[in-house]
Simulated assay, not measured.
Amino acid sequence: MEKERVTASPVYGGQALVEGVMFAGKDHTITAIRRKDDSIDYFHLPKEKNAVRMKLKKIPFIRGLVALFESAGIGSRHLTFATERYDVMPGDEEEIEPEETSKLGMILGVAAVGVLSFIFGKFIFTLIPVFLAQMFYFVAPEKTAQILLESFFKLILLITYISLISMTPFIKRVFQYHGSEHKVINAYEQGLPLTVENVQAQSRLHFRCGSSFMLFTVIVGMFVYFLVPADPFWLRIVNRILLIPVVLGISFEVLQATNALRNVPVLKYLGYPGLWLQLLTTKEPDNEQVEVAIASFEKLIEVEKYGVAALKVAVNTNSESDLDVDTNPLAVQ
């Protein structure tokens, strides 16, 4: 019965941050980060209610784009909170000079694999492969060959980029928190108590991950491109740019479908390519990182159940830490 209750509950998502994890529910988002003194600090951001956006999120192929922009706006706020606090002793925040509060230069690698920079990076990963494929036009001039070459280069660029940034210790730790995020969700969806032991026993992969979404854009894009002209070359460039929203919208539906089919024999393998990419974008977390992810998720569940009043309740962590509550959430148009 417990597992049936969890299955029927709202779908929760998350995002790995610098020394922390953000989880999002139906009405609220919560981040937990590990501070310099080993305490756990929190950031709360309620989701803004927008009637138009809520209606758009119910329309197939459109809802993916809406969700992407919404996640970008919310995620950037949580990312800013994490990067400005994780390496500062509690109580010293006000001593930071304004010009020192932004560490964007240090976290470009993190943002680039996140939802926000994905929107802009998509242009680069869409157009560069087109030019690379065109370089081989003299040996592969056919439309099919050009599209296959383009998709191949796009996949190689994606894998190479993620592999390179994952070699840095800083990004590796973010990927460990990414793994802890998935482990917590997997444990919750199985109806297990969220203990470090139970969470660590779970897979660090999840069918609904944004990494899978990135890979599906490559696969979906390949099939969509077969439906439009590839020549002349300038028209191919225009098509690729105009089709970005189409590819993103379809890829979101594919992601949702593979998640819905993950327990169906044979069909579950449709989501495996995305899981394989997650072997690069997630790493096995340590127990302390899992503790942070559990703290974030449990606080979200508490807020979703009892409302904002729950934010004032003391959290049972290694040390006490007040919640940073933002009552003016970022409006995502």
Score class of each variant (00 low, 15 high):
F213A: 02
P141F: 13
P229C: 04
R208S: 03
E291C: 03
A111W: 04
F118D: 00
T83H: 05
G73P: 00
D286A: 06
V264P: 01
A201C: 06
V292T: 05
R85K: 15
Y188I: 07
A145F: 09
I156C: 06
K305C: 06
T327N: 14
K49Y: 11
P90V: 07
A24T: 13
G179R: 01
V308L: 07
E304N: 11
F23Y: 10
E48T: 14
T126C: 09
V21N: 01
F138T: 14
F170I: 12
A331Q: 15
Y12I: 05
M89P: 10
K268H: 10
T101Q: 15
A32S: 07
E93Q: 11
L157Q: 08
P229A: 09
V115I: 13
I159V: 07
V66N: 00
A133M: 10
G210V: 02
F213T: 00
E142I: 14
T282M: 03
N287A: 12
R34C: 01
G73I: 03
I30V: 05
V264A: 05
I171G: 00
V88W: 01
K283V: 01
G73K: 00
S166V: 06
L149W: 01
L205M: 09
R236Q: 02
K57D: 05
L255T: 10
F61Q: 06
T281P: 02
F43M: 06
A310R: 09
N50C: 08
A187G: 05
V292I: 09
K3H: 15
F233S: 10
N259F: 07
D87Y: 08
L104G: 11
K55C: 07
L104N: 14
S321D: 09
I159H: 08
A133F: 09
D41R: 15
F136C: 13
R85E: 00
F136W: 14
E4W: 15
F152K: 03
N287R: 15
R208A: 03
R240Q: 07
I124H: 09
L227N: 11
Y272E: 11
P98T: 10
V224H: 05
M22R: 07
S319D: 13
L330H: 11
S71Q: 14
G105A: 08
P245W: 02
I96D: 05
A112T: 12
A309I: 13
P265T: 11
E253W: 02
V174L: 04
E189H: 08
V246C: 05
N287W: 03
S211G: 04
F207R: 10
E99I: 11
I250T: 00
N328W: 14
F131S: 11
V66Q: 04
Q200L: 12
N50S: 10
L205N: 02
I250D: 01
T317S: 08
Q333T: 15
P193Q: 08
L227Q: 07
E2A: 10
L108G: 13
E298D: 09
